[in-house]
Nucleic acid binder design. Sequence first.
DNA 1: GCCAACGTTGGC
DNA 2: GCCAACGTTGGC
Length: 228
Amino acid sequence: MARDRKTARKSKAKKEVNGSPEAGESAAKKSKVAEKKEENSTYTRWLMKSEPDSRIENGIDVKFGIEDLKKETNQTACWDGVRNYQARNFMRDKMKKGHKAFFYHSNCKVPGIAGIIEIVKEGYADHTQFDKKELHFDSSSKVDKPKWFMVDVKFVRMTKRFISLPELKTIHLKHKTEGGPLANVSLFTKARLSVMPLTEAEYDFILELENTDPVDKSCTPETTPSDT
DNA sequence: GCCAACGTTGGC
DNA sequence: GCCAACGTTGGC
């Protein structure tokens, strides 16, 4: 079924840290308030990052772009390898079948949104945490009490054009000062999260961009009309 | 390849 | 439970 060379690249085996059931996850209790709010929120739209370019980590290629998802059986794959508690919680507790997400290309020449995917299977144990040969093996996780979770996603379609990070950032900055739907978008307020929620307003606004010209044409090198 | 930002670990 | 040291993410 779903292959498993997803990315959302991550760390290697972690130290054993046990004691409390969820040891580790309270480590970063920065904004307890914000996190509580998040726990109680319902989201239906997401942004999921993956690396489209080859990059070898511990001898394993971490590449998994939207073109790779398309090639999977049923154009469906499990989103394994996420090793961040916040992202884990979203996949384990919040993502539901039928939710839509943007497939975001990270760690590449021009990062940005390449397409749309759909959640087709809700949170279940990420098998790669139990396999020593896997990049994201976690010796502290037990089969009867998995620490890491993943979902299955299915390719829906490419966006009509690539929506680059620089373009999104320009809009985000504008909305921050003048107000607008992307004023607080997680892509910039939680830049390092690989799985993040979007409000429907954020999602709809971004999606509408595919019907417009890029704010700054220099941000979309691929799409220059070159003929004639 | 660099490095800022931020998450995690572990000593105290 | 604080916080310094360390590790990772990911843009640039």
